[in-house]
Design a protein around this nucleic acid. Structure first.
Lengths: 339, 339
DNA sequence: GTGAAAGCGCTAACAA
DNA sequence: TTGTTAGCGCTTTCAC
């Protein structure tokens, strides 16, 4: 089983008795070439099983046609959907996508970013980790004029494009829904305040309370890292307060699920005794009993837009395009847990 | 904001008054160099902000240190977990991962594979689409001696490594569980017979029936593409049979969820009137009511092993390593839907 | 232990 | 429209 040697443009050139540059032009869709030659070359190329050496082309043109992606976790539905969107758009536009995950660790995120940087990606799309409280590792890109784009979770100190949803508004609205259904004592299990998305959700919650003239009672606002276990523990503490909440807005669906489990184990009826809401619309939220009220984020669409925007910027790097923050709408989904 | 020019080994060489090859050796950990020079070079490299040009190195060494991945869908939990495993292992071993998705379409799969091929990935890990009934597009790789590795869904006509689970055994066992709990009329909603995983599950089911002396009644075996909607429709037809099943083994959790919804809408108690089981252990299966019995596949672990195995093969391409099929154990998870 | 030189496969400025 | 030429930045033989 011998390896056939790789066919290059020089082989084609030899066989066709023309120059390598003509072959190159014919293959790259250059205008300055006759239709006849082009067809001839293309025919021969397929015949001989030529495949372009992307590496060499990239080295020469100093572009890799690759975008790097850093997400906290690939296996979270929201991020998987976003990646799916990125890959679909990038794939049909001649770009490759290198995926990396930070596992919500700053140290890992720094490594990912470094790897992508060394691999000379043309742009980087990222959603920062829960720990990210510095931006040194991202400055690398700005310094070399490599486009950065944040989606969902961003670093406020870096000036670049962002695709986000209005977490403040969503947090506000979902709290209002709890108020409208009659809840008087509403608590919130929040995520790390460091992250824009969580602090915005929290601010939306606070704003809704204030507007309705409801007080923020002691112990009604807890900051966690939003795991299921922490959801259980947080609601446990809340329900043991002298004046327990009758409604809890959980920072994400996983926490809400933990809270739900706690309630069911402790004989609390949801939503009668305490109404619950989550955030993110994970696949399980619609099918759990009672089904979870939540906020749906357009993950796939965010991915598509992110890819679109960064590729546009890469391909127009000579132009000055002002940075933009695109805010995509979310959808409030009211289900049994807060009916 | 001027771009600083990229530092190359030649810049370092000039500054240090040594040759580029020495710099190269110092940086690549070559033995034939004095400790003093090595340290000097490395120091200067960091000082000047040198970053190796991976492209040039790859062009020269004809290796890309990149593995390509093709999965049906990124946003399915099983595949997302596998990707997560691949990326973790590859990332810590100096390999990049390019992800593509076939959307379960043969045509798209061919494109993905072609792209990865042109990008000269050093190896490709894939799980084929539901439509894949040919292997021409995969022969490309075998011809160039580029390692292919299948995980979960494989193409039986390609001779290469595989990481799979024992779908026959799992199908057999989960059917046995239905039998043990007293089901007498057990149906199966199967996936496309083309795919090993689904036909194996089906064969396991048939084998369990036969062993228990239970008949396969007319209309008890349906082939679908395992969407939620098809699950509903299939079970609807089954429950309208003159002799409806009292247990249904669904080809995956999504179908089982559809079946569950049908039962709940039509006043059928699960598991009392009809027991249900799924396959895959999606995140929702544990939390739906009644919770779904299912089979857990070690997605993350399969990803790690896949990456490990293919990287090992890439780095030992001079050796002849016999192809191997690794069968990972699954875990039967009995929950309320078949208690 | 170090340097000189060739070349990986491609593109693009320039010339014809 | 086509050819010539000069690299992109690196590795790696082959000298010394």
């Amino acid at each position: 089983m011998r390896n056939h040697p790789e066919i290059t443009i020089h082989h084609l050139a030899n066989v066709l008795k023309i120059s390598a540059s003509t072959v190159s032009r014919a293959l790259s869709g250059n205008k300055r070439i006759s239709d006849k030659t082009r067809e001839l070359v293309q025919l021969k190329a397929t015949e001989m099983g030529y495949r372009p050496n992307v590496l060499a082309a990239n080295l020469r043109s100093k572009k890799t046609c690759t975008i790097g992606v850093v997400v906290p976790r690939i296996d979270r539905f929201f991020f998987a959907s976003a990646i799916s969107g990125i890959e679909d758009y990038a794939g049909t536009n001649g770009f490759n996508v290198i995926i990396t995950q930070s596992s919500d660790l700053l140290s890992k995120e720094i490594k990912c970013v470094q790897t992508l940087f060394n691999n000379r990606v043309d742009g980087i799309i990222l959603s920062i980790s829960m720990q990210t409280n510095e931006d040194k590792h991202l400055k690398l890109f700005s310094e070399k004029n490599i486009p950065i784009l944040f989606f969902d979770r961003y670093c406020p100190t870096i000036d670049c494009d962002r695709i986000v949803v209005d977490d403040f508004d969503s947090g506000y609205k979902i709290t209002c829904q709890l108020i409208e259904r009659g809840c008087k004592r509403i608590a919130h299990i929040a995520g790390p305040e460091l992250l824009n998305i969580y602090s915005d959700r929290k601010d939306g919650y606070l704003s809704a309370l204030q507007e309705a003239g409801l007080p923020l009672l002691d112990g009604y606002l807890e900051f966690t890292s939003l795991t299921m276990e922490e959801g259980k523990q947080a609601i446990a503490r809340m329900m043991l307060l002298s004046n327990p909440p009758d409604g809890v807005f959980c920072g994400n669906d996983t926490t809400a699920l933990g809270a739900l489990e706690y309630c069911q184990k402790n004989g609390l009826k949801v939503p009668q005794d305490v109404a619950l809401t989550g955030y993110s619309d994970e696949p399980f939220s619609a099918v759990v009993t009672p089904s979870l009220s939540t906020v749906r984020q357009p993950g796939y669409q965010m991915g598509v837009m992110a890819a679109q925007k960064i590729i546009h910027r890469i391909e127009n790097s000579n132009h000055i395009i002002p940075f933009e923050q695109i805010i995509l709408p979310t959808q409030l989904i009211i289900r049994e847990s807060s009916k």
